[in-house]
């Protein structure tokens, strides 16, 4: 803990990088996963293709994806994009299933009622299906966010920024305090992000807790 107070500025700097590297992939990944998840919830074929593909993506170790990405897209090894791309890939892989499960779980009679009242497909999706799918979707988003925050550190093993830098520096200089500082930062960030998403979820879906 003392390291944090003695190196306040450095800590904030690392925190900012860590936050950027973990939040940007969640946002991009979420935006990509919603249409894909919707597709998977509608079509057996899409499920049969997307789900196994997502599973295979998960099996690639993050460190491997981080070192391969620069070669595949032709940027330097120390570019932040090398963390953002792999974490986006993981987020999409995780969220496709969440979104698809969430949409599939919307009660059929509610959809039938919406159709019977004359909703057109897009409007029904935006005002009926998607809101009702939010609780499960947000649960998936929380898992993706927490695991991203934890995984960003891996980037430091190849020299990228974030709390992971404190781990590698602490390791090289045999300085436990520095590693602990990074660990505490990661866990606090994860807990805060998780709590924030939980809160957003509650505000967006007041009906989910009604009648309890």
């Amino acid at each position: 803990m003392t390291w944090i107070f003695e190196n306040w500025e450095r800590f904030w700097e690392v925190t900012a990088v860590h936050l950027r590297l973990s939040v940007v992939p969640v946002l991009i990944g979420f935006v990509l996963a919603v249409p894909l998840g919707w597709w998977a919830s509608r079509s057996q074929t899409a499920r049969a293709v997307l789900f196994p593909f997502a599973n295979v993506l998960f099996t690639i170790p993050s460190i491997a994806l981080i070192v391969i990405t620069p070669v595949l897209i032709g940027v330097k090894i120390l570019d932040e994009i090398n963390v953002i791309v792999p974490l986006t890939v993981y987020t999409v892989a995780l969220m496709i299933r969440s979104v698809a499960d969430a949409l599939s779980a919307v009660p059929g009679n509610v959809i039938a009622a919406a159709n019977a009242m004359g909703y057109r497909p897009l409007r029904r999706f935006l005002t009926v299906d998607f809101p009702l799918a939010l609780p499960v979707t947000i649960a998936g988003l929380r898992v993706a966010t927490v695991s991203n925050i934890s995984m960003v550190s891996v980037g430091a093993l190849v020299g990228l920024g974030g709390y992971g830098q404190l781990f590698t520096e602490g390791y090289q200089t045999d300085y436990t305090g520095k590693v602990l500082a990074g660990l505490i930062g990661t866990v606090v960030l994860a807990v805060l992000a998780d709590g924030l998403l939980l809160l957003i979820g509650r505000l967006l879906t007041p009906w989910a807790r009604a009648g309890r």
Partner: peptide, 10 residues
Amino acid sequence: RALPTTAVLI
């Protein structure tokens, strides 16, 4: 889940 494996290892 929030615990970074790298940090634990180190």
